[in-house]
């Protein structure tokens, strides 16, 4: 798939995010929109997965550590053919497989149940370690938020990733700078993230624009140093693609109303 086609996929996923959250009247559009290129890049250019055989033991693995970006995840899974878009109507509704946060028991293509922040890297470590132990060439991708890096367990997991030399693991950080109570700096400063991640033994690739699909794809394709887990520190825009949501803290966990849905979809039309 070329960059133009990948961009179209990203736009479709953004439309899905808007529709899903608007349908539900709840959900997390801001951090879903910022993560689109990272997730599309991983699923479309790196991961060996088969929607017809979602439990294939030889598949590559993806963990959405920032589980509240579920609408983005479901959009990508639908586009790949794991689930039907018909499910979107009932997102977050009783008896639907699409829970507010991903449930591995219910959704084909979801490898771990997430939503409680800070745990994705540790789960990914276990998968990457298991793959190496079994002699499999499985690649493992985990997508973390930036506010989530305030959880101590993330750093436990990163330490273990370096200790066990998990160079089959890629940690992607959706660094949109905002969290529920304000900016990262207002709530709990993350400091020099790139330096911290390097100090933890990761091979860090920093992307000034993590919503540039080509930059993301190139970073995913770039080799990592032998024995080092790769980390893509992507500076992104929360609410990316919808003018009135971009860089607005208030759109972390609020759904668009009907008027806002139409405006957002119009902005995403033809992109």
């Amino acid at each position: 798939m070329n960059m133009e086609e990948l961009s179209k996929v990203c736009t479709q996923v953004r439309r899905d995010i808007i529709n899903m959250t608007a349908n539900a009247g709840s959900g997390h559009p801001g951090g879903s929109l910022s993560a689109v290129e990272l997730m599309v890049g991983a699923f479309y250019t790196q991961m060996r997965v088969d929607p017809q055989n979602p439990h294939d033991p030889n598949r590559d693995r993806f963990i959405l550590s920032k589980g509240h970006a579920a609408p983005c995840y479901y959009g990508v899974l639908a586009e790949k053919g794991f689930i039907s878009r018909d499910e979107f109507k009932e997102f977050r509704q009783l008896h639907n497989i699409l829970q507010g946060h991903p449930d591995a028991k219910k959704v084909p293509g979801v490898d771990a149940s997430t939503g409680s922040l800070g745990q994705g890297v540790s789960i990914a470590d276990g998968m990457a370690l298991g793959a190496k132990h079994l002699g499999k060439d499985t690649k493992v991708f985990v997508l973390c938020g930036d506010g989530e890096l305030q959880e101590g367990q993330i750093w436990e997991g990163l330490m273990a990733a370096a200790h066990y030399k998990l160079d089959n693991l890629t940690v992607m950080i959706d660094n949109n700078g905002l969290q529920i109570d304000g900016s990262n700096d207002q709530v709990m400063s993350l400091g020099d993230l790139a330096a911290k991640l390097r100090a933890f033994g990761l091979h860090v690739i920093e992307l000034p624009d993590g919503n540039d699909i080509k930059a993301v794809v190139d970073a995913l394709a770039a080799p990592t140093e032998a024995g080092k887990p790769k980390c893509i520190l992507a500076h992104t825009v929360k609410g990316k693609g919808v003018s009135f949501m971009e860089n607005q803290v208030g759109w972390h966990g609020k759904a668009p109303n009907e008027e806002q849905r139409q405006q957002a979809l119009a902005e995403l039309e033809g992109k």
Binding site: P57, S122, I123, G130, Q153, E156, Y164
Partner: peptide, 23 residues
Amino acid sequence: FFNAGIAEANMVDMGAGLSTMGL
């Protein structure tokens, strides 16, 4: 045998990941 260090939360979640690999 995998030591998780003094990091119990990390240990049980690594266990979760390992279990999904059929171990």
